[in-house]
Amino acid sequence: MKFRLYRFQPESNQPPCMQDVELDIDPAGKMLLDALLELKAKDDTLAFRRSCREGVCGSDAVNVNGRNVLACITPLADLKQPVEIRPLPGLPVIRDFVVDMEPFFRQYKSIKPWLINDDPEPERERLQSPEERAEIEGAYECILCGCCTTACPSFWWHPDRFVGPAGLLQAWRFIADSRDQATEERLDYLEDTYRLYRCRGIMNCVEACPKGLNPTESIGRIKTLLVRRKV
């Protein structure tokens, strides 16, 4: 198979370039990560992140033929050749496919991604009906891979000010949790022209999410709450 790889090694003092390589691999039943591992076995200077290799840890997000995907769950056979692999867009590149995720995580942390409940803890669990629990379905499953946020032009323009789809999805995860008591604070934080309202609903995030989640819908629900609070 033919691959076109984005290569960048800061110590080499060379600008980034695209490298054409060919790999003798039978794509049947294999994932893109398998190909990357074989490429690395041949040339150990190729750098990328990986961990669980089954799509639950979120390490190996890359941009393949223009789409953000997790390499470990992208079937090799489905890819058009030459397979062009680049780092996620919109984040500083450290080396090859390794990007600096710091702006992404800073936005994630900005929304206070933890349950806030100041009531004294009961002896046993806090009760939550299956219906209440269902409210956070589609939000708590996020693996923080960054595919959605780095597919969002608003995040490209405002990485320091726009929370981005992943962060907003997590904000919704806590707003929607019947046990969380900080809805008002969370809405106060998001009531901002930049943090939330840079989202124009173009749904790039939905298309990019490898877990099939829908950040745009959650952002819409946050907006609904903000409007309801206002009027």
Binding site: Y194, Y197, K223
Partner: peptide
């Protein structure tokens, strides 16, 4: 980053 205008919903609406 300079942000935190606490407005937006009004304009959006």
């Amino acid at each position: 980053p300079i942000t935190g205008t606490h407005s937006g919903t009004g304009w959006w609406l």
